Amino acid sequence: MGLFNRSSNAAAPAPVAAEETSSIVADLSGDYVIDPTHTRLGFSARHAMVTKVRGQFDEFEGTAHVDAANPAASSVSVVIQAASVTTGNAQRDGHLKTPDFFDVENHPQITFVSTKVERNGGEWDITGDLTINGVTKSVTIPFEETGSAKDPFGNTRIGFEGSTTINRTDWNLSFQAALETGGVLVSEKVTLEFDISAIAQVPAQA
Rank of each mutant, 00 (worst) to 15 (best):
A69K: 15
N70F: 06
N70R: 13
N70A: 11
N70Y: 04
P71F: 07
A72W: 14
A72H: 08
A72Q: 15
A72L: 13
A73W: 10
S74L: 10
S74E: 05
S74K: 08
S75I: 04
V76Q: 08
V76I: 12
S77E: 03
S77F: 01
S77G: 11
V79A: 09
I80S: 02
Q81P: 05
A82H: 01
A82I: 02
A82T: 02
A82P: 03
A83D: 13
A83I: 09
V85P: 00
T87F: 03
T87V: 14
G88T: 06
A90R: 14
A90Q: 11
Q91M: 11
Q91N: 12
D93K: 00
G94K: 14
G94Q: 14
G94N: 14
H95I: 09
H95G: 08
L96F: 05
K97W: 03
K97N: 12
K97A: 08
T98W: 09
P99I: 03
P99K: 12
F101A: 13
D103L: 07
D103F: 11
V104G: 09
V104T: 14
E105C: 04
E105D: 13
E105R: 14
N106A: 12
N106P: 04
P108V: 10
P108I: 11
I110T: 09
T111R: 04
T111G: 08
F112D: 08
F112P: 00
V113H: 03
V113T: 13
S114V: 04
T115V: 10
K116T: 05
K116Y: 01
V117R: 12
V117N: 12
V117K: 10
V117M: 04
R119P: 09
G121F: 02
G121T: 04
G122V: 11
G122Q: 15
E123L: 14
W124S: 14
I126F: 02
I126C: 07
I126H: 06
T127S: 11
T127Q: 06
T127R: 00
G128T: 02
D129S: 07
D129K: 02
T131L: 07
T131C: 07
T131R: 00
N133G: 12
G134E: 00
V135C: 05
T136I: 02
K137R: 15
V139N: 02
V139F: 05
T140S: 09
I141R: 01
I141G: 09
I141S: 10
I141Q: 06
